[in-house]
Design a protein around this nucleic acid. Sequence first.
DNA 1: CGAACAGTTGATCAGGATCAACTCGAGTGG
DNA 2: CCACTCGAGTTGATCCTGATCAACTGTTCG
Lengths: 238, 238
Amino acid sequence: MSGRFLANLLKYVELSAAEQEVVEGLVAQRRSLPAGAEVFREGEASSDCRLLLDGQAFRHKNLSDGRRQILSFHVPGDLLDLQRAFQGMEYSATTLTPCEIGLAPRTALLAAMGAHPKIAHGLWRLSLMESAIYREWMVGMGRRTAYARIAHLLCEQVTRLKTAGLMQGERARFPATQAHLADSLGLSVVHTNRVLQALRAEGLVELRGRELVVLDWKGLCAAGEFDSAYLNLGRRAA
Amino acid sequence: MSGRFLANLLKYVELSAAEQEVVEGLVAQRRSLPAGAEVFREGEASSDCRLLLDGQAFRHKNLSDGRRQILSFHVPGDLLDLQRAFQGMEYSATTLTPCEIGLAPRTALLAAMGAHPKIAHGLWRLSLMESAIYREWMVGMGRRTAYARIAHLLCEQVTRLKTAGLMQGERARFPATQAHLADSLGLSVVHTNRVLQALRAEGLVELRGRELVVLDWKGLCAAGEFDSAYLNLGRRAA
DNA sequence: CGAACAGTTGATCAGGATCAACTCGAGTGG
DNA sequence: CCACTCGAGTTGATCCTGATCAACTGTTCG
């Protein structure tokens, strides 16, 4: 019932068969959403946490004047609102592609965490990774040029898509538009467009239509000062 | 041994006397640091997590060219590197004032979390709050003007100082320099200085020497589009 | 008394925003 | 089948927020 999520968790902790069953049992319902649909909205109350079982989505905050800041992009297996298990929700989530969403009752999650330290441990690691990504984005928005910021984001996305098994060689479906990139990086669409053209002209990446092609991975990493260490890839040991 | 930390935790969960004792027992050593001292450095290995028992400090990442991005400011009771209990360290921490640091062995922390779901619950909430603050900072750096960003940060700091009992009425010791503010907001020192002058001229806040005086709280909140909801103040219930 | 650091001021520069128009599909409906 | 729309991407021109550079003040502290 929650395949991708369990798989994601297993990258960080070993779980016994019994524990794995508990995780499987967390998802009480499934729900399909089309692309561009709101998964949940800032301030909305709910007793369920949302698991992204399939598809891609993003979290964002909306400003009073209609602009928005995208906070993170998500791949299958991500927990969108663990937050909610403990306190109020202060951001929204929207799908980029058609998505399968799993609903896990917050009480079930809390119970599982209480009864199975290993499961809690895995969830910890997921949310610490999230924090690590936030920190990296802050460095970008605070101190990097648009050029480096965009290159860095693309590197991060490629890395995450790869570990989620969503890259075919050097290419991947990339559902985010230039407007999404702009909203995640604190840039205007126009400038984002121009920088993407520069990256293309330099033979580093191509991003056209909904497809991303990495032409020069090393060069792209250099352009974005990207070091994947913060993503703590596949380290199981604590 | 870990008074302020326990008090901080108790804002978020109720703990039995036994559980409180476990928390007290986490701090195996104490250490005093002068102002401006490095608490730990990016990449540095350690088997202990650092608790800020007294004083103020900040986390930051350093760039290759010597610039830095400040990630968060901390008050007594904050856990500086829970991160470390699970994975590698990718940021540094430095004191703003003389500090008392508590060392909690990572194994002890993990054991306490495994054995006492309530303690784990409290730690979760601390780190979720942290994430919430990160998100708010991202909105600021991505989408707010320097003016709103600075006002917002001051609002946030005032609120946190208040809950930490560090405000005397409308004033507080404020150890961060303009350079610190600039490094946390992604601005230059010069511009930070000018905006602070504007806020002063408008009668919103005064920040001189190491003292902060709030002159017009409502006005300051308006200038920073500040809404304290994301800080989840003192909500014990989950 | 002289560093050394924090804060301040002025002048100039530039990265990126904003505004406006236009292209290019991919639907969609008549 | 064509006209129409609508969203994404692109281009050019102009503007402005905030960066950078450089100098100077004031204060603290050894």
